[in-house]
Amino acid sequence: MIVIQIKYATPSDAPTIHYLMIKAFEEYKDEVPLSSALEETTESITAALEDGEQALISYIHDEPVGMIRFRLKENGIYFYRLSVIPENQGKGIAKKLLKSLEEHAEQIKKTKVLCKVRMTVPKNIKLYNSLGYRIYDEELVYKPNGINIKVVSMMKQL
């Protein structure tokens, strides 16, 4: 059995968060438009963490293998950039990160966990559905380069 540890991140963890995110999002490098995750830097992540963003990092044998970034919103917790490095996908790490996030939400009296997912990534929609997340909205996100992205908003009521 794999033991997955989850720890809260600090701004000093930005390089680890960046590394995990880039490794996980590499599979989308040919998407049009390119995921903005691939344009982020350690510095932009550090700044976000210093400005109220939070993150959880998962470890197996003290090696970072996944992470999830999130912000507290009035109506719940909004997460994004859920990342598990490719060689560790399929081991329940994303599910464990989401479960930890949901437990955190309950501890701080938030009743909803929310996210947005590109419609071109059905495996993520399927994963979130399997954990009780439901689609409550669809929208077109307009990018400056004129390419639009269809996304669904998903939510889990705790």
Rank of each mutant, 00 (worst) to 15 (best):
N148D: 12
H61T: 10
I57Q: 04
A94I: 10
A47K: 14
A94T: 12
E26M: 09
I60G: 08
R69Q: 10
P15R: 03
R134I: 01
D13Q: 02
I85W: 08
A55E: 03
E138A: 03
L114E: 13
L114S: 04
I6N: 06
V65F: 10
S100G: 15
I68S: 07
A94R: 13
T16G: 03
F70K: 05
I68G: 05
Q5T: 08
K143R: 13
T46E: 15
D62C: 07
Y8D: 06
K150P: 06
D51V: 01
K150A: 09
K73E: 15
I147H: 10
N75K: 14
K116P: 00
K123D: 15
H18P: 00
L101F: 13
K112D: 11
L38I: 06
D13E: 03
R118H: 10
E139C: 06
I60E: 15
I6M: 03
V3Y: 02
Y78R: 05
S100D: 14
P33I: 01
Y136T: 02
S35R: 08
S83K: 06
I125N: 06
P86C: 12
T42L: 00
G92P: 11
I135P: 00
M119D: 12
Y59I: 08
Y78M: 09
T120Y: 04
A55M: 04
E53W: 11
G76S: 10
P11Q: 06
S58F: 09
E27W: 00
Y78V: 02
N129A: 08
P86F: 15
D62Y: 10
D137P: 00
E50A: 01
T10A: 04
E50P: 00
F79H: 10
K110W: 09
E31I: 01
Q54T: 02
Q157F: 00
E102C: 11
K109A: 13
T41G: 10
P86H: 11
V117S: 14
L114P: 02
Q107D: 15
H18I: 01
I57D: 05
Y136K: 02
I125L: 13
V32E: 14
T10F: 06
Q107H: 13
H61M: 06
Y19T: 08
I125V: 15
C115F: 13
A37Q: 14
P86D: 13
T111S: 03
E74K: 07
Y78F: 15
A47L: 11
M21F: 00
K126Q: 14
G76L: 04
Q54A: 09
L114N: 06
N129Q: 15
R134A: 01
I4L: 05
M154L: 09
R71F: 07
M119K: 13
K99G: 04
L34Y: 00
R81E: 12
K95D: 13
E31F: 14
V65P: 04
G90P: 09
T41Q: 07
Y8W: 01
G66W: 14
M21Q: 11
A105W: 11
E106Q: 14
K126L: 09
T16N: 05
E53N: 07
A94M: 11
Y80P: 01
S36N: 09
E102V: 12
